[in-house]
Write a protein that binds this DNA or RNA. Structure first.
Length: 393
RNA sequence: GGUAGGGUAUCCAAGUGGCUAAAGGAUGCGGACUGUAAAUCCGCCCGCUUCGUGCGUUCGUCGGUUCGAAUCCGACCCCUACCA
């Protein structure tokens, strides 16, 4: 595979490919833009798809520009519909941006990444400048955008600020003189606006490359925090491993292709192997990217121990009897479990007990009112498949 | 500004005076099974509970009618579309 083919692998849409190939073959060091809004502090594996692509460019000697949308984050994106998102202060945005970068550099080469903030130019902009920017697009053009069109048809509200978003993002490209912008496929429209703004400014137009959206843990919707079907960069190794294991078998191939950059021919081979083994391998590799090989192997071993063999895990939270039941030598089963604060409500705990999910040292107990005496040695409580904890004397 | 339609549990959504803590989905959780926190099947899903046809809180907000209201009345707040 030559350089260009590698860079375009897995891309969903490529606009301006010819121009791009020309610049690459001329040996130009491309300015590769990727913008993120630090509105929420967590990156998900959905973002990782694009980060991996950016890293590929980086590895081939191009300039990775990570654009922090600190200005836009301060305006507060209203697209959450019913709930008004709180407006973030400059401080909060800065904090988010910091953790954002920290996470991003697990994938990207930090020493080789240019970081920009769009407040640098937008803070200096007047309202008149803003109106002039807004002149560049028409309402009809905006309504061409698929998700706007859908929302309009569904009678869900679209705020004017949302209309301005593509312009804001596009203007970033003008300032940065980006040669190519990367993004998820939901960003296509915004990135195209960047092209037309660049053209109007008499500058060369950026190429646009979208990456497919990664499917979430449910196996049907895109991975997103609002659907709560995501794996975060910041998930601990256990959750990360477990969450990967919980994706439907069919979703594995996309994960291999988009996150581990596995080639199609290798994926074909994997398809003939045992799905569980293939998934364990996937989970181990992804976990290793974030937590290191050693940690990943440990989680694999734990997983096999707990879920394949049904044994208790090596590590679990430990509670002192006196912390759970102060001043008492005995306590009911519900109350002792409730005191750990690991569960939503006592009702939930009662339900778990009734449904046979609670075991003490491997013995199922179905009476919530059962009296427990302060143990002489540590006992292991289990509620459901995943929740374990120890109570020590 | 005018007209019409809305605001129900985590989300979507039914419900127009009592049988409603509130149908049905989805998500989630539990059990069985297994090849995994896959798939499938079954069960649970407001809080508290002395587990009792028990208590408390809920259907945008406040107030009213009624023996009794998510359901009727009034005011207010918010959302959407269309027309201006």
């Amino acid at each position: 595979m030559n350089a260009i083919e590698t860079l375009l692998t897995n891309a969903e849409v490529i606009i301006g490919q010819e121009e791009l190939e020309k610049r690459i073959s001329e040996g130009k060091r491309l300015k590769v833009k990727f913008g993120v809004d630090p509105t929420r502090p967590d990156l998900t594996l959905g973002h990782m798809v694009v980060f991996e692509k950016l890293r590929q460019f980086q590895e081939m000697g191009h300039e990775a520009i990570l654009l922090i949308g600190d200005y836009t984050a301060q305006i507060g994106d209203p697209s959450g519909r019913s709930v008004l998102r709180p407006v973030l202060t400059a401080n909060e945005v800065e904090t988010n941006a910091k953790t954002y970068l920290e996470q991003a550099f697990r994938i990207l080469d930090e020493s080789n990444t240019t970081i920009c903030r769009n407040s640098e130019w937008f803070n200096k902009m007047s309202f008149g400048d803003c109106l002039n920017l807004a002149r560049n697009m028409t309402v009809a053009q905006m309504l061409e955008r698929d998700d706007f069109a859908k929302r309009h048809n569904n009678q869900t509200p679209i705020s004017i600020v949302e209309f301005l978003y593509p312009l804001v993002q596009g203007y970033d490209s003008v300032v940065l003189q980006a040669d190519i912008e990367l993004g998820g496929s939901d960003q296509l429209f915004n990135m195209l606006v960047g092209r037309s703004l660049q053209k109007d400014a008499g500058k060369p137009e950026q190429a646009v490359l979208t990456m497919p959206l990664l499917i979430g843990l449910d196996g049907s919707r895109k991975m997103s925090k609002s659907y709560d079907n995501y794996i975060a960069f910041n998930d601990n190794s256990k959750d990360m491993f477990g969450k990967v294991m919980s994706i439907p078998d069919d979703a594995m191939w996309d994960y291999y292709r988009l996150l581990l950059l596995t080639q199609d021919c290798d994926i074909e081979k994997l398809r003939s192997e045992h799905p569980m083994e293939v998934k364990k391998n996937l989970a181990t590799q992804i976990t290793a990217k974030f937590h290191g090989k050693e940690e990943a192997d440990k989680e694999l071993a734990q997983f096999e121990k707990v879920f394949s063999k049904g044994e208790t895990p090596d590590e679990m939270p430990i509670f002192n009897w006196t912390a759970l039941a102060p001043d008492s030598e005995e306590c009911t089963l519900v109350d002792i479990i409730s005191a750990t604060n690991l569960f939503e409500s006592k009702g939930e705990i009662r339900r778990l007990i009734k449904q046979g999910a609670v075991k003490i040292n491997d013995q199922t107990h179905t009476n919530a009112q059962q009296i427990l005496k302060k143990p002489d040695s540590a006992i292991i409580l289990r509620a459901g498949k995943r929740k374990y904890f120890q109570v020590s004397p």
